[in-house]
């Protein structure tokens, strides 16, 4: 009885306190934070939602009537016929987010395995080396790539020398620079949860598969991959969602041709002064993230990680 009770989920709930007592204590402990978040997050987001259905006045003011115009425009059906500008931005954001996640998976896997196979005393330093950039200001790491990818830098010359891109074409600004900046920024987000799974790997399965004559690729695919899937999926989500909504990296490395959702929002709230339209873009960006998160939570709760494949 005792063990069953103490291990059941939610056993930290103080069950012996009556419902009214629970409410009172909730009000004291949870109340202030809850009120804060409702006032300063829920209401602002709701306001954002409402304003996304309003119109912009001649001087940038927000005014009636209610309209779906902002969302139509975002989908390309503006007042002046079809315009692919905003659908392209939406797709580009998703593609860059997915691309970043993919490159991070491909590069993060070897790094996670490398760290986990180090002798014990080197593991913490190696992991700390991954964590340091993670805690270093994003702006600094991003603008550094402006220097590294500048037309006359040694890196640019090296890249051109091994025949990627045309000589004279700058590597920055553009999609390539944004991708580099994103991967550099988000790689730790993937490596950390992935490393946690790799560290717990049961290598005996791999050895058994080797014994049975499986080649290395098949061993990885069938014996190791299923075990690290939860970490891999969590890491991918941690990269994909924030990368899609990035603002600083495309702003500093992207230039005019690599506008993402974040930049479009900033532009509407800044120079264009079209807050209703900016709100609509922001609301769509928020919805994308929340739906992604919800799907992930639902799948991983219901079935457990490996089934997601």
């Amino acid at each position: 009885m005792n063990t069953i009770l103490s291990k059941s989920p939610g056993s930290e709930i103080k069950e012996h306190i009556s419902y009214r007592g629970q409410l009172k204590r909730s009000a004291i402990t949870t109340g202030p934070g809850l009120v804060w978040l409702v006032l300063l997050l829920l209401i602002p987001l709701a306001a954002l939602g409402v304003i996304s259905f309003l119109s912009r006045g001649d001087y940038g003011e927000i005014q009636l009537p209610f309209t779906l115009e902002n969302y139509k425009r975002l989908l390309g059906f503006g007042l002046l016929g079809f315009d692919s500008l905003y659908p392209a931005i939406l797709l580009r954001s998703l593609a860059l987010g997915a691309g970043t996640a993919l490159i991070c998976v491909v590069t993060g896997l070897p790094l996670a395995f490398f760290i986990s196979r180090l002798p014990a005393r080197f593991k913490t330093p190696a992991l700390t080396l991954v964590i340091i950039p993670f805690w270093t200001n994003l702006l600094i790491r991003t603008y550094a790539w402006q220097i590294l990818l500048a037309p006359e830098s040694w890196l640019t010359r090296f890249v051109h020398a091994i025949a990627i891109g045309n000589v004279g074409d700058p590597l920055y600004p553009g999609t390539f620079a944004v991708a580099i900046g994103m991967v550099c920024d988000y790689l730790p987000f993937l490596v950390l949860p992935l490393y946690a799974s790799v560290e717990k790997l049961d290598w005996s399965l791999a050895e058994a598969a080797m014994d049975l004559g499986a080649n290395r690729m098949r061993v990885f695919r069938h014996a190791l991959l299923p075990q690290i899937m939860p970490g891999l999926i969590a890491g991918t989500i941690f990269v994909f969602l924030p990368a899609t909504g990035q603002f600083v990296i495309p702003d500093l490395l992207g230039g005019a041709k690599t506008v993402m959702l974040g930049n479009a929002i900033q532009q509407q709230f800044g120079q264009s002064r079209d807050w209703p339209f900016g709100s609509a873009i922001a609301f769509v960006a928020l919805a994308l993230v929340m739906v992604g998160l919800w799907l992930y939570a639902r799948k991983s709760q219901g079935k457990g990680g490996p089934d997601l494949l």
Binding site: E12, I13, I17, L37, G262, Q266, A285
Partner: peptide, 27 residues
């Protein structure tokens, strides 16, 4: 409080708590 006490709408609020974690900065 979230760990120890019950209140109506707690599950929903538990979800809402993750919004600031994952919301894009710019939004």
């Amino acid at each position: 409080g979230m760990n120890r006490f019950r209140f109506p709408g707690k599950a929903l609020f538990g979800w809402f708590l993750y919004v600031p974690v994952f919301i894009p900065d710019i939004v």
